[in-house]
């Protein structure tokens, strides 16, 4: 995606500068319209050649597409859809994630706290684990 947008932007900028230069050259080399009075300042509105106009419009379109493709993807605003994306992102490799966090920032899982609630700690299982560990460690810890 980055390659596409960079190519589009580069091509658009090249065409834009070329067409603006062409327009400037055209307006500076074309003599003023004889029919217009010497006090009228703007005469070149309709006299710009068609190819320059088309090149300009095409370059603008390329640049717009490139800029939009280059921008960060939008994020879903409903909590439900957002959490779904983050959940899916956890199994995706780096670089293919749907939500790109800015540098030095993390997009946290919104339901992470559910996994870490102290009130839901299984104290009996922990006690059994501890007992197993004591039994395995041998007599020197069983003082």
């Amino acid at each position: 995606m980055t390659l596409t947008s960079t190519t589009l932007n580069a091509a658009g900028l090249l065409l834009l500068s070329h067409s603006v230069y062409s327009a400037w050259e055209h307006s500076s080399t074309t003599p003023p319209h004889p029919a217009s009075s010497p006090f009228a300042t703007s005469t070149s509105t309709l006299t710009l050649p068609l190819d320059i106009t088309l090149e300009l419009l095409l370059s603008l379109f390329l640049l717009c597409t490139g800029i939009i493709l280059h921008s960060a993807p939008l994020r879903p605003i409903r909590w439900r859809a957002w959490a779904e994306q983050i959940e899916k992102d956890q199994s995706r490799p780096e670089g293919r994630k749907a939500i790109r966090a800015p540098k030095g920032e993390m997009v946290a899982h919104p339901f992470r706290f559910l996994e870490e609630r102290r009130g839901f700690l299984d104290i009996r299982a922990k006690r059994m684990e501890f007992a197993d560990w004591v039994r395995q460690a041998g007599p020197e810890v069983q003082t």
Binding site: S42, T45, L57, L60, L63, S71, L74, R75
Partner: peptide, 29 residues
């Protein structure tokens, strides 16, 4: 957070593209 992110993204795109449209409109006379 998502709403702010989206608004910021749209604002950035608008700022860039509208300046380019200005260049286009000026060159077209």
């Amino acid at each position: 957070d998502s709403m702010q992110h989206n608004t910021k993204t749209i604002d950035n795109i608008r700022a860039l593209t509208s300046s380019l449209f200005g260049v286009g409109a000026g060159a077209l006379g």
